[in-house]
């Protein structure tokens, strides 16, 4: 697989949110505003890249029997570093993301990439894989949070998109049920497009 495909698979065919549907808890919880989603996306991408690169570097040194605890220690270390730096230099973002930064440790996407990719591939390929997955994750949660923030708060990145109160925002989109409804509808749309394309490809053959 070349680098381009390796990068793009994280965004399209193996998008962690829309295709693999992994790690849904933070996806549902922090997508209340676009700024939250972007902050979470950057933190998540950084953790993914660091853990993939480190694990790929030491993959030959780790015996198979203890690989999971070894991965978890590496991931937890990277996450704690991100947590501390965020607290020091981006305090308001740290407060709004709250518990979900430390919880990246147990996010199955990170462990999943370590187990499925970094433990079997070279450093550069693992880096590209993590970058693609991170960008795919960030785009996905940004899309969800855009829908939720525009419909739920009537703003985009804090800027009022419905001036003069033309439309009353529906706060259900900001709270938990709105997260499920938004995710469900987006998944349905994406699957519909995917099936249509698969059918077309079949008809061609």
């Amino acid at each position: 697989m070349n680098n381009k495909d390796n990068f793009l698979k994280g965004i399209f065919t193996e998008n962690p949110v829309f295709m693999l549907v992994l790690g849904m808890c933070p996806v549902l919880a922090i997508t209340t505003s676009v700024s939250n989603a972007l902050g979470m996306g950057v933190a998540f991408t950084f953790v993914l890249i660091m853990s993939n690169v480190i694990i790929s570097l030491i993959r030959k040194f780790i015996p198979n029997d203890v690989r999971i605890p070894a991965y978890i220690v590496v991931i937890a270390t990277v996450v704690t570093i991100v947590d501390l730096f965020m607290q020091a230099y981006a305090y308001s973002l740290y407060e709004s993301l709250g518990i979900f930064i430390p919880l990246i440790v147990v996010n199955c996407i990170v462990l999943g990439r370590a187990e499925a990719f970094a433990s079997k591939n070279g450093v550069f390929a693992s880096f590209i894989d993590a970058l693609g997955m991170g960008v795919g994750y960030t785009l996905a949660i940004t899309l969800i949070s855009t829908v939720r923030e525009v419909l739920g708060s009537g703003t985009f990145l804090g800027i009022d998109v419905f001036p003069f109160d033309l439309v009353q925002p529906a706060s259900i989109f900001v709270i938990a049920p709105g997260a499920f409804i938004t995710l469900g509808i987006l998944l349905a749309i994406i699957n519909a497009i995917r099936f249509k394309r698969a059918k077309k490809a079949q008809a061609k053959e």
Binding site: P69, A70, V73, V74, T77, T80, I81
Partner: peptide, 14 residues
């Protein structure tokens, strides 16, 4: 030993 080394290094880094 492997786990110890990994944990030690990460503890130091933190």
């Amino acid at each position: 030993l492997v786990l110890f080394i990994i944990a030690f290094l990460s503890g130091f880094l933190l």
